[in-house]
Design a protein around this nucleic acid. Structure first.
Lengths: 114, 114
DNA sequence: TAAATTGCTACTAAATTAGTAGCAATGGAG
DNA sequence: CTCCATTGCTACTAATTTAGTAGCAATTTA
């Protein structure tokens, strides 16, 4: 990883993906958005900017520790940014969200089928 | 959760999502596929059925413990099943994969932009 | 029938996440 | 200005998840 101790470990292109040697972009992405509440944060930011505390309450009161870690990671990845109202999706973040959005409808059908 | 001890905790509709009270399908889904290597497993099964050990080597040699846990969860969720060649996507799993697939191309552009 | 290969369990160590407390900074209300 | 509420966090400990390694029983292959 070659990163300063205590800095957040953001997956980067070419980096090993938690033990992997490939560093394929899709795996780097999966590593990033596969962390707890990462997709939930993107989802909850999609309809409106949120303050830290509002985001926290929208995300099942997840601990501030984790929320802050996720926000740092997502900001370093260029998907989230600070706005006057707290946090917001960047343009890239919104494009990613647009790819995730259809999962909402699919998830409902899937849930019923279980 | 009301589940037998030692059984795997698969997120279910209406269940609390790791502390959440909503149980919204999309959050249940995010909880499921947001676990380590869950999306990677789906991705690696998309082009061909895999044996346990091949899947393991495709997924950066992730530990058999975790792979087996993910497989149980994904099977319980109806996304993966056993086939004569090992493991395979179910129809539902393939539909989900089709939603994830566009992320591959997007991830490449995103990775370059970092 | 001996040797591989496969699917997996067991176990320990390391990392991540949960949960709670609380503090410094900002922004009104009076 | 002064008080108080709200916000954005940091600190810390406990619980849960994941990593990593070893190895075994069953099936397949030679």
């Amino acid at each position: 990883m070659v990163q300063k101790k205590d800095s957040i470990k953001i997956p980067r292109l070419g980096d090993a993906v938690r033990g992997s040697k490939s560093g394929q972009p899709i795996m780097v992405l999966f590593d990033l958005i596969g962390r707890r509440w990462a997709m939930g944060v993107l989802w909850n930011l999609s309809d409106q900017d949120c303050t830290f505390r509002e985001l926290q309450s929208r995300c099942a009161s997840l601990s501030p520790t984790v929320l802050n870690t996720r926000l740092k990671e997502l900001r370093a990845a260029g998907l989230v940014e600070k706005s006057t109202d707290g946090y917001a999706l960047t343009d890239a973040g919104r494009v990613l969200y647009n790819h995730l959005e259809p999962l909402g409808g699919w998830a409902e059908k899937w849930a019923k089928s279980l």
